[in-house]
C-alpha cells in the first residue's frame, strides 16, 4: 500500500505524470485523468487560498494572475509537511528571496515577511502576553524580551507604508530605499505594527542584541545617527508586551 499511496500522492501533487493503476472512476467522467484532476485542482486551490489569506498584501501588490503564478511556483517546489494547512506559508518569504520575483520586486520578500509576522502574531498567538509597566528613566537600561511576544523585522525599504496602504486598500506611494525596522505584536486583542526609522532601528536592534542602553547609544553615535528623539524612541518601546526595559 505504501507504494500505491506514494503514486497517488505524487500524481495529485504534480510530482509524477504516471497515472496510478488499478483505480475505479466515476462513470460519467470521460477519463481516469479527469477524476484525479479533481484532486489536483483542489491541491492547487488549497495553496492559493491559504497563501492568499495569509499573504494578503503580497497578493494585492502582485494582482491575481502573478500571485497565482507565484503560488504555483511555490507549490511545485514545496512539500507540505504539516497537518495544519496554515503552515503552508511559513517558508513563503524565503522562497520569494530565491525566486525570479525577487529580482523584479526586491521588497516583495520583506512584504511577505511582514504578512507572515502579522499572521503569526495575530492568528497563531500561543499565549496572551501582558504589557510591561516599567518606564524608561535616565539610568542605564537593559531590554529583556519574552520569546514569541513580538516579531522584529528589518527592511531596506519603507515596507511599513507599503503594507499599511495595501491593507487599507489604498494606492501605495513610491517605494523608497530606506532602512526601516518594524515591530509586530498584539496588545489587548489588537494587532500593532510599529515602524522605526533608521536611527531608532539601529538603537532597538542594538538593544535587542543584548547591549545596554549606554552601549547601544554609543554605537549609534559612532555611526553618526540622529538620536535627538531618544526618549521618544524609548517611550515607543514602553508598554509593548514581552518587551521589558529594566534598570541595571
Amino acid at each position: 500500500m505504501k507504494l500505491r499511496q506514494k503514486e497517488i500522492l505524487d500524481f495529485i501533487t504534480g510530482r509524477s505524470q504516471k497515472l496510478p493503476e488499478g483505480l475505479v472512476f466515476p462513470s460519467k467522467l470521460k477519463s481516469p485523468l479527469a477524476s484525479l484532476e479533481i484532486y489536483q485542482k483542489a491541491y492547487r486551490a488549497t495553496f492559493f487560498e491559504v497563501l492568499g489569506a495569509n499573504f494578503e498584501s503580497v497578493w494585492k501588490l502582485m494582482g491575481d494572475d502573478d500571485f497565482l503564478k507565484l503560488c504555483d511556483s511555490f507549490r511545485e517546489k514545496h512539500l507540505s509537511k504539516s497537518y495544519n494547512v496554515d503552515d503552508l506559508g511559513l517558508e513563503f518569504p524565503e522562497f520569494i528571496v530565491n525566486s525570479k520575483w525577487h529580482q523584479e520586486i526586491p521588497y516583495l520578500a520583506d512584504l511577505a515577511s511582514l504578512d507572515r509576522a502579522v499572521f503569526l502574531q495575530f492568528r497563531r498567538a500561543q499565549v496572551e502576553h501582558k504589557s510591561s509597566k516599567i518606564s524608561p528613566q535616565s539610568k542605564d537600561l537593559d531590554l529583556r524580551t519574552q520569546q514569541n511576544a513580538f516579531i522584529w523585522l528589518e527592511s531596506g525599504f519603507n515596507i511599513f507604508q507599503l503594507w499599511s496602504d495595501l491593507s487599507d486598500d489604498k494606492g501605495f506611494e513610491e517605494i523608497k530605499s530606506l532602512d526601516q525596522g518594524v515591530l509586530v505584536y498584539k496588545a489587548n486583542n489588537l494587532l500593532k505594527v510599529m515602524p522605526f526609522n533608521e536611527s531608532e532601528m539601529y538603537l532597538v536592534k542594538a538593544l535587542l542584541s543584548g547591549l545596554r542602553l549606554s552601549e547601544a547609544v554609543g554605537l549609534c553615535v559612532e555611526v553618526e545617527l540622529d538620536l535627538s528623539h531618544l526618549q521618544e524612541t524609548l517611550h515607543k518601546l514602553q508598554g509593548i508586551p514581552g518587551l521589558y526595559l529594566v534598570e541595571v
Binding site: 500500500m1 505504501k2 500505491r4 499511496q5 506514494k6 497517488i8 500522492l9 495529485i12 501533487t13 484532486y39 483542489a42 491541491y43 488549497t46 512539500l79 507540505s80 509537511k81 504539516s82 497537518y83 494547512v85 503552508l88
Partner: peptide
C-alpha cells in the same frame, strides 16, 4: 498524506 507529505485532501483507500 504519506511519508509525512500532506495532500490536505481526504483520500480513499482499498
Amino acid at each position: 498524506g504519506f511519508n509525512a507529505h500532506q495532500s490536505h485532501d481526504l483520500l480513499p483507500f482499498p
